[in-house]
Amino acid sequence: MSSIPPEDIDTTGHAGLLIGSRWSPPADPTWVAVIAHGYGEHIGRYQWVADRLTSDGAVVYAHDHAGHGRSEGESVLIEDFEPVIDDLHLLVERAQAENPTLPVVLIGHSMGGMIAARYTQRHADAVAATVLSGPVLGSWEPTALADLDEIPPTPIDPTTLSREEDIGRAYQEDELVWHGDFKRPTLRALATTLENVTAGGRLGVPTIWLHGQDDQLVPIDPSRAGWEHIAPEGAPAKAYPGARHEIFNETNREEVLDDVLAFVHEHI
């Protein structure tokens, strides 16, 4: 499978310029994918995912959230996630304007899964389906750090990302990844958003929940409990034995993307 480099796109978001990417398929697109990345990372880490999606006929849009990657804003500082959802809506609206006849599928990983769930609650009319990958839902243990007088060093252990050793190594060496500590306002905003998602009702579009069973970064049980509050009636869910947090970068990533595409084609 050949790799298609993205075009840079930008939008003015709530905290400044949002730098994003658009990947176009080799032939006329048949659907649109919008990706929401996770905490501390950036959309450049999703090239392989974009390759799979474009080879399936998707035109793929994504941007670095405020304070992440190449976008403006203080690093990993998010005091309220509702403006981040507003930023994402600007991207979805752009994707719709440029592809007015095509269905849009939202794909969110980790913190981006939480963002995607909240987005779907607020803008169910904007997407045809939603995919949640290792989403932060229900509760997340690191948010308790916000109550400490001093937040201890909290670098993400790269071995929790994938059984594929190169993934952790590349993550450690990536200068666009945040390798510092959590910020108190961000932790509090995460906790508030998790409560809002849980209270926000069942998602109004077809949605699938996918998770690694050995995920130590976003443990499966709290996420599954949160999913049960918002899952549409009869919504599919799948856990992958042995898989860690980044299931799109895991040793069984082909299986995971096969499952994503099978779900997408069932609903577009």
Rank of each mutant, 00 (worst) to 15 (best):
T101S: 15
R224V: 10
Q172G: 12
A15C: 12
D125T: 15
Y119S: 04
Y240L: 01
H65I: 03
P153L: 04
K238R: 15
H265L: 01
G138A: 11
S110I: 12
Y46V: 06
V60E: 09
T130W: 02
H89M: 15
S2N: 10
V205N: 07
P6V: 05
I85F: 02
G242H: 01
K238L: 13
M114Y: 07
P155K: 06
T198F: 07
Y240E: 01
W178I: 10
R184L: 07
A225H: 12
L53Q: 01
E72V: 01
R184K: 13
R224H: 12
G20T: 11
R253W: 09
T143R: 04
Y119R: 05
H229C: 10
A27R: 15
H14K: 00
H68L: 06
V264Q: 02
T154Y: 05
H89V: 11
G112R: 05
L91W: 08
G204P: 04
I247K: 00
M111G: 02
D80R: 10
E98I: 12
P206Y: 11
G180M: 10
G180Y: 05
G212L: 08
T11P: 00
L91R: 09
D10V: 14
L217I: 11
E98R: 12
D259G: 04
G16A: 12
T193K: 03
M1C: 09
W227G: 00
L91I: 15
R184I: 13
R122L: 15
L106D: 01
T198V: 13
G234I: 12
T101R: 14
V136Y: 00
D125L: 03
R94G: 05
V127K: 01
I43V: 14
Y39E: 03
G13A: 13
A116I: 03
A129E: 04
S139L: 10
V84W: 01
L148M: 14
V104G: 00
A95G: 06
E266V: 03
S75N: 12
V197F: 00
S139G: 07
I151C: 03
G200A: 06
L106K: 05
R22T: 13
N99M: 10
S162I: 12
I151V: 12
R253S: 14
D64I: 10
E41W: 00
D221K: 11
A117E: 01
L217K: 02
P222K: 03
L203K: 05
I230C: 01
V260Y: 00
D149S: 14
L257C: 08
G204N: 07
A191R: 14
L187R: 10
E254A: 14
H37Q: 12
R202K: 15
L203S: 04
I268D: 02
K183I: 11
G16N: 06
P241N: 05
H63Y: 15
H65Y: 05
E175A: 14
D8T: 15
P219L: 13
A33Y: 02
E82N: 10
V218Y: 02
A237R: 14
L176E: 05
S133A: 14
A243N: 04
S24Q: 13
R45K: 09
T160D: 11
P153D: 14
E7L: 15
D51A: 07
G57I: 04
T154I: 11
Q47A: 15
S71F: 11
G69R: 06
G73A: 13
S133I: 12
P83S: 04
H265A: 08
F81G: 00
D28R: 15
A126W: 08
L210I: 06
P29H: 09
